[in-house]
Nucleic acid binder design. Sequence first.
DNA 1: GCTGACTGCCC
DNA 2: ATTCTGC
DNA 3: GCAGAATGGGCAGTCAGC
Length: 829
Amino acid sequence: MKQSTLSFGKPDGSSSAAQSKNKPPAQQKLSFGVGGQLGIKKIGDKNAEAPIDSKLKVLNEASAKSEIQTDASVKSSTPSKSGVRLTKRTIEEVEESQIVEKVEVHSTTKKIRNNDGEATDFVKEEKLMVKSAQKSASASKQTKKDDEEMKEVEQNFPPKDLSKLKPPSSAKYDPIQDAPFHKGQLVPFGFIARGLSEIELCRGKNSKDAIKEIVANIFRSTILLNPRELPDLFYFFCVKLGPDYDSPETGIGIELLSNAVAKACGKSLKQIREQFKQEGDYGIVVEKSKGVQKSLGTFFKKSQETPKDLTFKRVFEAFNKIARQSGNNSQNEKESIILKLLQDATNEEAKYIVRWLQKNLKTGAAEKTYILALARAIAYTPPNHKGKILNSKLTLGDQLFAEKCEKIELAICEAICEFPNYGLIIETLLEHGDDLPKLKDRCHITVGIPVKPMLAKPTKGVREVLDRFEQVKFTCEYKYDGFRGQIHFNRNNPQQMVKIYSRNLEDMTGQYPDVVEFVEKSASQDVETYILDSELVAFDHVNNRILPFQTLTQRSRKNVTEEDLKTKICICAFDLLYLNGESLLKEPFIKRREILHKNLHEVQNSFVFAKYKDAEALEAIQEFLGDSIKDSCEGLMIKTLETNATYEPSKRSLNWLKLKKDYIDSGLGDSLDLVVVGADFGKGKRTGMYGSFLLACYDENLEVLQTVTKMATGLSDEMLAKIYSQLKDLEIDKPPSNLKFKEKNIDVWLVPKYVWEIKCADLSMSPIYCASIGSVEKNKGIALRFPRFIRERDDKSVEDATSSEQILEYYKSQPSLLKNDGEDDDFDF
DNA sequence: GCTGACTGCCC
DNA sequence: ATTCTGC
DNA sequence: GCAGAATGGGCAGTCAGC
C-alpha cells in the first residue's frame, strides 16, 4: 500500500495526480495499520506535515510549525488569547484541476506556502484583519474587499436571470448553468437559504433521498465554481464553525438571540416572546416580521435597493467574528453583528441565520444526511478529474452510480470517524476526488486527533441482552458514572504528551492536569503512542470508593487549583484503539482488551481496568449488575468479544449494549408519583402545547408541595396533545399557594391535580428544586436525574404523591453516598 | 468586587 | 442523558 | 434500526449591571 506522499506546498504547480504517479514516496515508511491497510503517520514526524484544517483564522496565536498535534492543542494551552490561527492551504498549490480553471478569488481560507516569507505576510494580514474586526462592529475590511472583487468578477460575468434557472431540487439541475453565480464568484447566501427551504419541504416517501439530492447539487455547484468555499459551507450545514475538538463557540443563546430578533423586527422583547410562543421558532418569527421585506431571489441582482446582497462567506465570517468577541461589551458587539446581518438579509436568509445561531436549522436533515450528500456530490462530480465529469450518473447508469455513492459514503464516514476534521477531509476530496485510498491515507486514526467514540444502545433487561447476543460470545463490564475520557499518549511530543478528549470530541486536557501527569509517569518506556478509551471517575483514596458524579462535576475546568485536585480522579480503562503507531480499530474486542491489559499497567486507585465478567447465564449477569450498582456504577456495558466486535466509532451499534437498573421495567429503578404544578410551552414540533412539566412531591408534615424536577420525555405525541387539552384549563396566574419552589421563569402554573408516575436514574442535590429542602444541605433540595414519564396515576390524589421523606430516603440510600461500605468491602479492580 | 443571568458542556 | 417518530 | 428532534439536572465560566 502506498504511503501518502504528503509533500504539499510545492509551488511547482504540477498536478497532484501526476505527483503521486511519478514520484515514489520519498519519505520513510513509518508504520502500518493492522494488516498493512492503514498508513499510519506518526505525529512527531516532520514529513508528516499534512495540511491542517482549512478553518479558523479565528483562533489563537499562529504557530508556524504545525504538526497536527501541536496545532490542535493551541486552544487549550492558550485559551484566552485571541489572535490568529495559521491556516494552511495546500490544495490550490498542488492542484491544477482539469475541470476548474483557476480563478483568483479572495476566499475565506488563505493560501500559505511553506515559504517563510509568505507565511509571515499571511500572519500579518490576518492580524490586521482581527484588529480591524475588534475595532468596529461594522463589516470587516475583508468583506468590503470581497465585495469589490466580486464586483469585478461580475463585470465580466453579467448576473444570471434567476427565472431561467432550475432549482437544485430539479432532476435536471445543471451545477454550472443553473447555479445563480459564476465561476470564481462567491456563493450567494440566498442560494444556500433557498436550498435549505427546499429541503424543509421534503417530506414523506423518499424525502431523505430528495434532500441528499438538493444538498449534493449545492455542493456540486460549489465544487465546480468556487471549491474553496466547500469546507466552510459544509461546516455551515453542520452548524459548526470548525472541528469539534478545536473550534470556538458563538456564545449566542436563546436570550441574546431574542434580543437581537426583537430589534431586527422593531418590536419589544415582550412582543417577540409572545410571537415565539406561537411560532415555536425564532427563525420563523424573524422571517415573518423582519423590518424590510426584500423580495426573494434578489440575491444575485445588483439592484440599487439591495446594495448588500449577502454572500455565504460574509455570513460565515460574521459567525466567526461573533465567536471571537469576548470581554467587556462583547454581548453588544455580538448583537450588532447579528443585527447587521439580519438587516442585509432577505427574510428567508434571516430565518436561517437565526436558526443557525440557535444551533438548529430545522430542515429535517442534519449532519449525517449532509455527509451522505457530500458523498453523493463527490460521486456525481468528482473534483480534480481528468476530463470534465459533470454528472457521472449519466455514464455509469443508476445501478453503478448507486454503488459508487455507497463506496464513497463508507469511505467518508470512516474518515470522519477516525479523523473528524471536515476541513481536511474535504480538501482531500477536492484534491483527489473519488480516489478513496488517498482519503484513507490522509484521514485516519491519528494520535492527537480524537476518534468519534463508540456508543451503546439501551436495553430493557438481561433477557433482551441474551436474546440479542444469542450464540455469540460477549462480556459484561461495569458502566462507571463519570466523564468519558479518550486519552491520547504520544511520547514523541514532549510539549504535550497527553491529551484528553470528551465524548463530544472536546479537548478537556486542561481540566485534568493531574491525570496528564499521572499518565505521563505511568507509561512504560516501550510504549510510544496509544489512544485509550476510558471513563474518568472521582475517587476517594481514603475509603477506596467511587465518589458521586456530582463530586466530579465540581472540579474546575480551567485554572485548576490545589483545591480541585483534592478530588482525585481514577481512570477506568476499557478499550485501546491505537498502540505504537498501529490502529486497533479493526481488531475484535477480545484482542483489544488483551493488548490493553498487556501493555498498560494498573496503578491502584488511579488507573484501573474496567471490572468485567465474561458471564453467560442470566443469573450471573443479574448478579454482576447488582454488584456494579453496589460499587457505585450505573450498571453494565455488554460487548461482543469476537463477532462484530471491532471498534465502530460513533455507531450506536448493536455491538455495545448498556444495561442500567432504571431501564428494567418494574425493576430496581426508582419510580416516583409526582404532582404536575406547572409547564413550559413547547418549541418546534411541540409548538402550541406544553413541552415540559414542573413536578412536585408532597411533604406530609409541612403539608406543602415541593418542586422536584421538570420532565419532558416519555410522552407520545398523542399523549402530549391530550395532556395539553386536559391541563390548559388548570392554568393559574400565581403559583399554587402551598408550593415550595424557586422557579423564576415557568410559562404557566397549574392547579395541582394530576399525579404521574416518573422514573429516574438517580437523585441529586439541587440548587433549584425543593424536595426535602434543607435536610441534607442548607437551602438545597433533591432533584431527579434523567426523569421520564411512565404513566398517569388517575388513582392517586395530590396527597398520595411520593413524600419528601421517601425521596430523602432514596437519596441517602444511593451507594455512592453510603459512607460505611468502603474499607473492607472489597473493591478490587 | 459581588451577584445573577446566560451559555456551553458534561451526564 | 431519555424517549418518540417518520422513513 | 437510523436519524432527527423534542426535552431533563447541574456544573463552571463569562459577562452585565449594580
